[in-house]
Design a protein around this nucleic acid. Structure first.
Lengths: 207, 207
DNA sequence: TATATACGGTACTGTCGAGTTTCGGAACTT
DNA sequence: AAGTTCCGAAACTCGACAGTACCGTATATA
């Protein structure tokens, strides 16, 4: 008998897998996905863009679907950290401080990827979960954190519905991009903050 | 020479086209579209659901793309009229009166169809326009009308940004359905009205 | 050095779907 | 009745793509 699998690297025979190919392929997958969507994407496109052979792709992922799920899930890690969020002292200041190039580009790419996946989410729960954790949830989590601080400061009522409030801006940005197909510029984002998010955060219990 | 085309029916030779097949096929197209999306849809599926032959489809539309564009554009007509809108005397009353079965089912189907088209809108302007006019614009137009009345009554400030306000609820409903994949029930819609739309409509110029 | 696996590239296989054609029969015009 | 077009159904063509196999070469272990 052999010790068959001691959970150690085992130092396999022959040339080892080149880890740099993994990231190149995953990144190429996201690029193509953002450009032409899931159904428009072919594995040949991905391989070509990653300057890899198709066999190199299939050596790592058993199918196109699994490749895409992994690529989407990987976006979760490259997040513009939840640690160094702005802290200007006001909710408005924090929200506006989030409007800066690196954050926006990250959001734009994620939204394009999401657009190419939307029609699949209904029929593929695994992909839906990956997309939610990597794209949807992080953005809401940031807003939630900023708003919780505002509650702690007494700036907005503690009764504020953060589940709803934290999704306002992502929802409006998504809608404007995907449905209205209009550009999301700085003026629009500020308009959302001043005309929607802040009134909603403060005004919950009027009437 | 012939009078070649005097814009009259011309009484063509042979069996005439059966108009009832058109509507059946367009309706089947929307059904399939809502279920599996544009890329998942095949012309055979549509023909089968409409109990029609594939030739009957291609006798009317030159390609799958044109068929879909026409089907989407047709949704525009079947609108739950902009004429008999609720008029309860308050904006809140009007908005809540819009939450009723026929309206909701219409909206749900349109949203499913839209979900199956999202990834195409970027690369097909003709389809994007059809989808906008048939699905996106009508809903915003209704909200805009109700809100304009509220302005006329002096219920909300005349400075209110109706372009933004009228898209709030469609955006939040879309986001919840497509991205969060949570159900849109009556409680959620009322929560939107009370916690987002009305505060935003009133609170524009505070601070 | 011998063996084994990864690599990029290319060719292959099998399936699926858009669009076309053909069929027997039905509906219309002359 | 003769001629034409529509109908549903089925068979067909053809291109695209997922997935596999193989090549020559590169990189690892023993």
């Amino acid at each position: 008998m052999m010790p068959l699998d001691l959970a150690e690297p085992a130092a396999r025979l022959g040339r080892p897998l080149d880890a740099s190919r993994d990231t190149d392929i995953l990144d190429a997958t996201l690029d193509v996905l953002a450009e032409v969507g899931y159904d428009g994407m072919t594995v040949d496109m991905v391989a070509a863009r990653a300057k890899a052979g198709k066999a190199t792709v299939y050596r790592r992922w058993p199918s196109k679907t699994e490749l895409v799920i992994d690529a989407v899930a990987c976006m979760k890690n490259n997040d513009l950290a939840l640690t160094d969020l702005p802290d200007t002292g006001t909710l408005r200041g924090d929200l506006i401080a989030m409007i800066k190039p690196p954050t926006m580009q990250d959001a734009e790419r994620k939204l394009k990827v999401m657009a190419g996946l939307v029609s699949l989410l209904t029929r593929n729960p695994e992909l839906a979960d990956a997309a939610n954790e990597a794209i949807v949830a992080p953005r809401a989590a940031i807003n939630r954190t900023l708003m919780q601080r505002a509650i702690d400061r007494g700036e907005i009522p503690a009764t504020a519905n953060l589940d709803l409030l934290s999704t306002l801006s992502p929802a409006l940005v998504s809608y404007r991009t995907l449905m209205l197909r209009k550009p999301v510029d700085r003026a629009f984002l500020i308009s959302i903050i001043d005309n929607v998010v802040l009134p909603a955060a403060r005004g919950t219990a009027q009437v």
